[in-house]
Each structure stands twice: as C-alpha cells, then as structure tokens.
Amino acid sequence: MQIKHSHRYALPTLVSHAFDIRQQIFTHEQGFPADIDVDEYDDNALHVVLYLTDKPAAVLRCLLLDEGLIKVGRVAVLKQHRGKGLGRELMRFVEQYGLENHYSAIGLSAQHTAIEFYHTLGYQTQGEMYDEDGMDHIYMTLQLK
C-alpha cells in the first residue's frame, strides 16, 4: 500500500487516476452528473491517491484553506477494495498531514451513508442534514491537537 499526494499540475498522472476513480464511483455507481465532479477547486486542491500494487484503489481531495482548515471531499474507494480499511488509511493520512502542517481542524460534507464511518474516526456532526446534489449530507469536523 502506498499513498501519494500532489497538486493538479505537479503530478498529472496521479490526478488523472484520482479523476478516474471519482468518475467510476460518483458518476457511474452513484449516478451524480459527470459535470459536477471536476470543479474549479480541483486546480488548487491536494489530491491524494492510495495505490495497491501500483494500481489506484482509493482517492480523496483536500482543500487547504487559509483559516487553518482542511476541507476533505471526493472520498472514494473502488468497489472491489471496500472493507479493507483503505478509506480509514486515507483519512489517517490527511489527519497526519494536517498535524504536520499546523492545521487546526478537518471538515467534510459526509453523505448520510458515511456518517458512522466518520464517527469512528472521531468526527463530530455540525448542524442539520442538508441536500447536496440530491443526496442527504451533514457537515462533520475533527479538531486536530
């Protein structure tokens, strides 16, 4: 298992792998419109890809915000690799990245089906459930120590 990260233009192959996984999960599997997956935030985001035997298996995107917050999104694990702890490894990577780079918190907009997963990692819900692109989400945060 290897986790690599890059901004969009530094390692275009890594970002291409990230976009491919996101399209497989969010567009083909979950039915979200393809045109909403890649957006204006991707140009400045930190893209993180987890590789198994040199093949991309899981991905997430981090927006590194000025106010000491990392906003995580686009978390996706290929279907054949679910249940192996890869999502947990990606989130641990982001937490460690945040600590090493002096961020104070991580925030994310969790799909309702992923709330329990994030709770097990120490994230707390903030506010009420809301609709995002036709699916219930809730904002969750993790304070970094």
Rank of each mutant, 00 (worst) to 15 (best):
Q2T: 13
H7T: 12
R8W: 09
R8L: 15
A10N: 12
P12T: 03
L14A: 04
V15M: 13
F19E: 10
D20L: 12
I21V: 13
H28F: 14
I36H: 09
I36E: 07
D42W: 09
D43L: 04
N44K: 06
A45E: 10
A45V: 05
H47W: 13
H47F: 12
H47K: 14
V49K: 05
V49N: 09
L50S: 10
Y51M: 05
L52Q: 14
T53N: 15
T53P: 00
D54P: 00
K55L: 15
V59S: 06
L60A: 07
D66A: 15
L69C: 05
L69Y: 00
I70N: 02
I70Y: 00
A76D: 05
A76M: 13
V77H: 09
V77N: 04
K79C: 01
K79T: 06
Q80M: 13
R82D: 01
G83D: 10
K84W: 13
R88M: 11
M91I: 02
Q96T: 08
Y97T: 05
L99C: 02
S104C: 08
A105Q: 14
S109F: 01
Q111G: 01
T113E: 07
A114R: 00
I115N: 00
E116S: 14
E116H: 14
F117K: 10
Y118L: 08
Y118Q: 10
L121G: 02
G122F: 13
Q126Y: 02
Q126T: 04
M129R: 02
E132L: 11
E132T: 03
D133N: 13
G134V: 06
M135P: 00
D136F: 06
Y139W: 08
Q143D: 03
